[in-house]
Amino acid sequence: MLKYIYRRALQLIPILIGITIINFGIMYLSPSDPAERELVLRGMMVSQETLAAMRADMGLDQPFWIQYGRWVKNLFKGDLGTSFASGRPVMVEIGECLPYTLSLAATAIIMTMVVSIPLGLLSAVRQNGILDYLIRVLTFVGGTMPGFLVGLLLIYVFGLRLKWQPVISDGSWSSMVLPTITLALAMTCKYIRQIRAAILEELDKEYVWGARARGVKEKYILYRNVLKNSMLTIITLLGISIGYLLGGTAIVEIIFTWPGMGKLVMEAINMRDYPIVQGYVIWMAVIFVSVNLITDLSYRLLNPRIRLSEEVA
């Protein structure tokens, strides 16, 4: 098991090299000049001389590979560079946004799971009943509503009309409610439908019938067999969602002025703030590789066929 984790961690290296080179290349080729922007920002005169001086100062006059190499060298020292826009270290900028992104992702995932697993199960067990139809219609509508629409509707109703929630979040626990619901709604609807489908497929298998023929209690069949086997589907969904949420959810964060990773990187892209964007890309790569790893490990835990074939091999 440890060997497997170690091998998977090694795979991270080429992925990171590839991702950073591509990202660095795109930034390098982009038409906007950060040196010029920096001069404007400082209120200095933009001329050939000041521009050249600023470029030399920022290291932008050197060839691509030198710039990239320097960045990689610093990365190993735990230094992701300094933000062009704020002049503060990238590590600090990301470090400040991360707790907000993590807490929002956690609440959204928990809410999604708590609502979608029981409802998906219920919908499958009562297949073609009134409740099932109701759940299917509602999840269809909820799943097709775009996040910004839901967010704005929630702000209008609970912020402006009912005044239950602040319109602009102050980072407190209570101001997480609306962004959490916005994120969780679409996910919950998607999850309910997928969980329902997975459970129906599982209920159709012969072992369920076999268990019934032995008089096994329906609750054992449902929770210890069907739900357990459906967990593979749920975990696959979860892996994708967690990766997506930890990258920050730009639209929701901007609507609710939530100071997370998505908002940070959107602003950095607008400002051509290369170091921040690079730091973000590294973060995303690490997230996706580790979430994939955790997903694979849970597969092995849940499915003895995968687990045992690895051990023999």
Binding site: Y207, W209, G210, G215, R224, N225, P304, R305
Partner: peptide, 16 residues
């Protein structure tokens, strides 16, 4: 197919 592949034979006996 009448047995659940992700559970041991022992669990089948137990739940029955």
């Amino acid at each position: 197919e009448a047995l659940n592949d992700t559970r041991t034979i022992g669990s089948h006996f137990l739940e029955t």
